[in-house]
């Protein structure tokens, strides 16, 4: 169980780091993101940025939650993204557009 929570934390960190890197590039220097920030409206990410983020994370984590389990359209906020990669909590996500 302990091991499981370490994996969860590491994953969370990996997702955050990859996201921060792209946000930095798009919106300029940022060192902190809030879970309720909107990826598109507030952080200015476009769909190709999200595609790149998912690609980077697939290489790092060897998983792409959007291939089957989760529709990418349901990811609106930083928190939605973190939950999509969380091995324990894959739900609940916001409603698809």
């Amino acid at each position: 169980m302990r091991n499981g929570s370490v994996i969860r934390m590491n994953r969370r960190e990996t997702v955050m780091t990859a996201l921060l890197e792209i946000v930095n590039e798009v919106a300029g220097p940022v060192d902190h993101l809030d879970e309720d920030q909107s990826l598109v409206d507030q952080l200015g990410l476009e769909s190709l940025h999200l595609a790149r983020l998912v690609a980077v994370l697939e290489m790092e984590l060897d998983t792409d939650p959007f291939t089957a389990e989760v529709p990418i359209t349901s990811v609106r906020t930083v928190g939605d993204l973190l939950r999509a990669y969380d091995p324990v909590v894959r739900a609940p996500l916001g409603d698809p557009a």
Partner: peptide, 9 residues
């Protein structure tokens, strides 16, 4: 194959 290409741009 586009995924690793996107990752490295």
């Amino acid at each position: 194959c586009l995924k690793p290409m996107l990752a490295r741009r």
